[in-house]
Every structure is written in structure tokens, then in C-alpha cells.
Design a protein around this nucleic acid. Structure first.
Lengths: 145, 145
DNA sequence: TATTGTTATACTCTATAACTATA
DNA sequence: TATAGTTATAGAGTATAACAATA
């Protein structure tokens, strides 16, 4: 097996940026169809994995903590999340997805037609391979832990 | 080779969102180090591939055409891009990267340390495989053309 | 003293609608 | 008539700095 041309890191990063743009565009359109901004949608998507404090949310979304106040305010006003003071540290507020928030983010994910179609273009074995490679490349924390 | 567990589309999409968030965060921090917003950086990155009209830029960045005016205005004011009327259609304005703009986007890409380190964690053959899989999954246009 | 979250502020991003110039 | 780009406007995202409550 020597049929594949050698791809350097720059080329791969370039394709990564194109893939990200496609994924992000798909997500943005899907979120807009539920009257959510991309940042609001991303916040719900992070909270699918479980509750998170304001500062953890800010770190995950790569934005300043002060931004999260407004984003979570709007999501809370629509009943998609709720704030809950942490029992162990009264400074901390944990943000939790409501049942309605869970429903909405599942709808959005289901509307990512282009991405879903793209992934289904791969065989089951290819999806396994892609999963393993992404995990190796993008989750350095696991290696360090 | 049956050692890899079967990954379903939802799991893969989940890891994809984590991976792309990592890439996007890396890019956002690198762009900020050059005093550029993520949108301004993305615009420069698209223009690396060659000139593009305002409407093509808007489509690529998944935003309304009216947004591009302000983004390109600010980039032009900093001398990173310039507008040039299309010879074939006088309504169209092509946006072109200046030498300084090319320098800045190259600096930003070089500062994406986490992403570069992650990709270099893979072997050359693994990078080829990742490239091929991403291309299949995210560039449906090629298959349609 | 340091940290979590909020508020105030200024700038940028974003979509919608209305407009001009060109096709 | 339709399309490319701009302008005006209002709401949302963003970082910085200053603040209150808690650790």
C-alpha cells in the first residue's frame, strides 16, 4: 500500500479548516432554524455532556467568562438551561440543561444533514478509523492523564 | 483486524464537535495574538486560496453578504486586503490578500501550536488516512462535479 | 490574597430591510 | 427583473476593567 500521496501538516490543516467551515456552517443553519445563535447552540451542545460552571463553559467556548453571563441569561430566559449554585463552593454556579433544552439541541443535531450525510458516506470501519485518528490528534489530555 | 469498537454516527459527530472546537479555539487565540477577530482571521484564511468576491466570501463564511462589508472594511483599513472591481462584471468586487495580509495569516497558522502538535502526533501514513477520510466526508462537491 | 461570577463599556459580528449601480 | 454590494438599524457576541461575594 503506497498508493496514497504524502500529505504534509500544512495541507492537512488546510483541509481541517475547510471541514470545520462546513461543519460550522451546517451547525449555524440548524441552530438558526430553532432561533438560536451559533454561540447559544454551542453552549447547549457542551451541556449535553453534563452540567458545567460558568467558567468551564467560557473556557470550552474559548471566550471570556463575562460573555457567558449574557449567553446563559438568554438561554435561561427561554427555559433551555437553569443556573444552580454549587453546594461545595458558593461562588460557583452550575449550568444545567432542562428537558426542553435537551430536546432543542437534539433537534439541531438531527438537522445537520450535510454532516450526517458526509459521515454516512464512510463505511463503518472507516468511521472507526476516523474516530481513532481524531481522538489521537485532538485529545492530548487523555495522553497526559 | 476486528479490535476497534464500532462507532456510530452520533458518537463520531460528538468527537468531531470536540475536535473542531479545539481547532477553532486554537485559531481564535492565534488570531487574537495578531489583534484580529476570528471572523477577520477566517476571511484571510479563505483568501489564501486566492481572490474571492464579497458574496463568495459571505457564502464561505456562512454569513449574510452585508456583514462582509464591515469585516473587509477593517481588514482593508489595516492594509491586509484590498478591493478590486471585477473586469467582467462591474457590480462585483474581488477581495485580494496583500503581501502584509499573507504574512499575517501565515504567522497565525504557525501559532496554532496545539493543532500542529496534535497532527504531528500521527505518523505520515496516518495523516494520509485522516486527509482522505475528511476529504470524503466533507467535500461532497467533488463527488457531484 | 485569589477566584467566581456579574456589571459597565466599547467595539465587532450578525441578520433584516431598503437602497444604488449594474446586468 | 434580478443580482452584487453598501448602508442603516437593532440585537447578540466579545474583551477589558472594576466590582461583590466567597474561598
Amino acid at each position: 500500500m503506497t498508493g496514497t500521496p504524502r500529505i504534509d501538516t500544512a495541507q492537512l490543516m488546510e483541509l481541517l479548516s475547510v471541514s470545520l467551515a462546513a461543519y460550522y456552517g451546517d451547525f449555524t443553519v440548524a441552530a438558526a432554524s430553532e432561533s438560536l445563535t451559533a454561540s447559544q447552540g454551542k453552549t447547549l451542545n457542551v451541556l449535553r455532556r453534563g452540567p458545567a460552571s460558568m467558567s468551564v463553559l467560557a473556557t470550552t467556548l474559548t471566550c471570556d467568562a463575562s460573555n457567558m453571563t449574557g449567553i446563559v441569561d438568554r438561554l435561561e430566559k427561554r427555559g433551555l438551561v437553569r443556573r444552580e449554585p454549587s453546594p461545595s463552593d458558593r461562588r460557583v454556579k452550575n449550568v444545567i440543561l432542562t428537558a426542553e433544552g435537551e430536546r432543542v439541541i437534539d433537534v439541531i443535531r438531527g438537522k445537520m444533514h450535510a454532516t450526517l450525510a458526509g459521515l454516512n458516506r464512510l463505511s463503518a470501519q472507516e468511521r472507526d478509523t476516523l474516530y481513532a485518528l481524531l481522538e489521537r490528534a485532538f485529545t492530548a489530555q487523555l495522553a497526559a492523564a
